[in-house]
Simulated assay, not measured.
Amino acid sequence: MEFGRVSQETLDSVDFKLPPDNAETLKLLQAHKRNVPTEIFIGCAKWGRKDWVGKIYPKGTKEGDFLNHYARHFNSIELNATFYRIPTFAQTNGWKSKVGKDFRFCPKFTDQISHIRRLKETQKQVDQFLEGISGFGDNLGPVFLMPHPGMGPKTIDTIEAFVKSLPKDIKLFIELRHAQWFADAEASKAVFSMLEENNVGTIITDASGRRDCVHMRLTTPEAFIRFVGNGLHPTDYMRVDDWVQRIKTWMENGAQAIYFFMHQHEEIHSPELCKYVIEQVNMHCHTNIPVPQFIGNDPLFV
């Protein structure tokens, strides 16, 4: 992921500290508080990495078996592949057959819908997309939408019309990238209120060069975090530590589910940092998420 990338030389000057929660976030969480454990899903953005062979995939693993091995280490995947091509039912049903019953696929709406048509006159493509991802069955997690980055506050009616056109049983999260959503207080209040009214979650994207996207406003009692690391730079671990404490606070206040997906500008190191996230969440949030097991003698992987 290139979004929010800055030079290595400037990383130490970035203020990575998480902002305080929006006042509406804790109010919403407490209003939905239930006496049940928070579900936590942690994973990467893709599984098809040949450079993970000998790291988390045994040497000699064929590409067709990558997902089987990925699902032994992580309980979810942020499925960016569906942004570039609408999958077929047969494809998603085939992927489903390679994972356990508790694994979650979180597919991204295709660019034909979000970027090329910008959410207008999309019924044919939406129907095709929803038919395709239906093959995941009970393994389908949240579906997420990133409107074209050029879609700012003037397009709020278009976004709302699209949201309302979707089936109500789709768990939807939206990632906003146009800077005006965050720079304009009225626009920010309007869009987050609209999403909350429609039971649509907000994505928080933590990237070095776009700190405005770390808005800390939840609109449902569930959180979806896209974390963009910088090649295992020391600040990556400091940022994860901060996130773990925030996740703990949300859990204590009634969060029903947390989805945390790891990105790196060079994805080769995503499993290492993802492993660290899981270890820290287990330690501080009293969870028991299976920890990925690495292969080889490199000290990073044991």
Rank of each mutant, 00 (worst) to 15 (best):
G4F: 03
S7E: 14
S7A: 13
Q8Y: 10
Q8G: 04
L11H: 03
L11R: 11
P19E: 06
N22W: 08
A23R: 06
R34I: 04
T38M: 14
A45S: 10
W47A: 04
V53K: 02
K59I: 13
Y70D: 05
R72Y: 03
H73Q: 15
F74G: 10
F74T: 14
A81P: 07
F83A: 08
R85F: 02
I86F: 02
I86W: 05
T88D: 04
T88C: 03
A90T: 08
W95I: 04
K101F: 01
K101H: 05
D102C: 01
F103V: 04
C106P: 06
F109K: 06
E121T: 12
T122S: 12
T122E: 13
Q123I: 04
Q123H: 10
V126C: 05
P142C: 01
V163G: 07
I170S: 11
I170C: 13
L172A: 02
L176Q: 09
A179W: 00
A179V: 03
Q180A: 07
A183T: 00
D184Q: 07
A187L: 00
K189W: 08
S193Q: 12
N199W: 03
D206P: 01
A207L: 05
A207V: 07
S208L: 06
R210Y: 13
T220K: 09
E222Q: 13
N230L: 01
N230G: 05
G231P: 00
M238V: 12
D241H: 14
R246L: 08
T249P: 02
T249A: 06
Y259R: 12
M262L: 08
H265Y: 03
I268W: 14
I268L: 12
I268M: 11
E272W: 05
I278N: 12
N288L: 01
P299F: 14
